[in-house]
Amino acid sequence: MFNPPHTLAGPRHVAIIMDGNGRWAQARGRPRLFGHHAGARRVREVVEACPGLGVKYLTVFAFSTENWKRTQAEVAGLMSLFRRYIIKETQTLKENGIRVRFIGDRVRLDAKLTALMDTLEEETKDNDLVHLTVALNYGGRDEVARATKRLARDVAEGRLHPDDVDEETLPKYLDTRVLPDPDLVIRTSGEARISNFLLWQSAYSEYEFVDTLWPDFTAAEFEGLCRNFGGRERRFGAVPA
C-alpha cells in the first residue's frame, strides 16, 4: 500500500544510482543476477515510500550505456528481468497513481522490451502521485550527444537560430526535458562517483554516498536521507543572506 502524501521539507526529486547488487549476491555465494532480482524488489519499496516523504519525482539508474561490457549472460538476464518486472508491476503502478517514464537510447534494446516500455508509459500517462523515471541504456554523455544532434538539426533546418542557443535551450532536447532537475542524488554501495548519470541535470544537486548495498537499502534509510536533505542550505553559487 502506498503511503499518503504529506508535506516534508525534503527533496522533490530524488535520483538513485542503485549500486551493489552483484557484490551483495556474491557475498552470499549466489550468482550476480540473484542480486539484481533482490534489488528490483527494493525499487518498489522506495517508490511506495515517496508520497509520504513528499518526493514527487524518483529517477533510478537501471542500466547504463557502459553495462553492455558485462558478460553476455548477465546482460541477457538483466533484460529478461526488466521485461518480467514491467509485466508484473504494470497493474500495481497504474492503480497506485505512479507515472512511469523511461530515459536512454532505446535503439539497442530488443523490440519486445521497448514495446513493453511503450505500453507502460501509455497506461500510466494520466497518473500524478509519483513520477518514476527509469534510466535504461542511459549515459549522461550519450544523452547530451543525442540532444546536441537534435538541436543542431533544428539549427540546420532553420527552426532555431544559433544566437538563441544557451544553457536554457539544451535542456529542452534532453531525455529529461519534462522533469525538474534532481534535488538529491543517492549512490549506494560505498562508491563515491557519479558514473555518467544525469551529468547536466545534477549540476547543483546534493549528493549522498552511502555504504549500503542496494538490496539492503531500506525505506527507512531512504527516509533518513530525505530528512537530512531538509537541513542543507542550497545556495546555487550565491552568498547566504
Rank of each mutant, 00 (worst) to 15 (best):
F2Y: 01
N3Y: 09
N3V: 07
L8I: 15
R12A: 10
H13D: 04
V14N: 00
V14T: 02
W24V: 04
A25I: 02
A25T: 04
R30L: 14
P31M: 04
R32K: 02
L33F: 08
F34N: 08
F34G: 04
H36P: 02
A40E: 03
A40G: 14
E45K: 14
V46G: 10
P51S: 09
G52F: 03
L53Y: 00
L53N: 01
V55L: 04
T59W: 00
F61H: 12
F61D: 06
A62C: 11
A62Y: 01
F63H: 05
T65P: 08
E66L: 15
A76R: 02
G77C: 03
L81M: 14
F82T: 08
Y85D: 15
I86G: 09
Q91H: 06
T92D: 02
R99A: 06
R99E: 05
R101Y: 03
I103W: 00
D105Y: 03
R106P: 02
R108T: 13
R108M: 15
R108K: 09
A111F: 05
A111E: 13
T114R: 01
T114Q: 04
T119Q: 14
L120H: 08
E121Q: 14
E123I: 12
E123N: 12
N127M: 05
N127T: 10
D128E: 13
V130A: 06
H131A: 14
H131F: 11
L132T: 11
L132D: 07
A135V: 12
L136H: 06
N137V: 12
Y138I: 09
Y138P: 01
Y138W: 12
R141Y: 12
E143M: 09
V144G: 02
V144P: 07
K149R: 12
L151V: 06
A152Q: 14
A152I: 15
R153C: 06
D154A: 05
V155T: 03
A156P: 03
G158F: 07
G158W: 13
R159W: 10
H161K: 15
H161Q: 13
P162D: 03
E167Q: 08
E168I: 03
Y173K: 12
D175R: 02
T176G: 08
L179C: 02
D181C: 10
D181A: 13
D183F: 05
S189M: 08
R193E: 10
S195Y: 05
N196I: 14
N196S: 13
A203Q: 00
Y204K: 11
E206Q: 15
E206M: 05
Y207C: 12
F209L: 07
T212V: 15
D216W: 07
F217H: 10
F217K: 06
A219V: 07
A219I: 07
E223V: 13
L225A: 03
L225R: 09
R227K: 00
R227C: 01
N228P: 01
G230I: 08
G231E: 04
R232E: 02
R232A: 06
R232C: 07
R235C: 12
G237A: 06
A238W: 03
P240C: 13
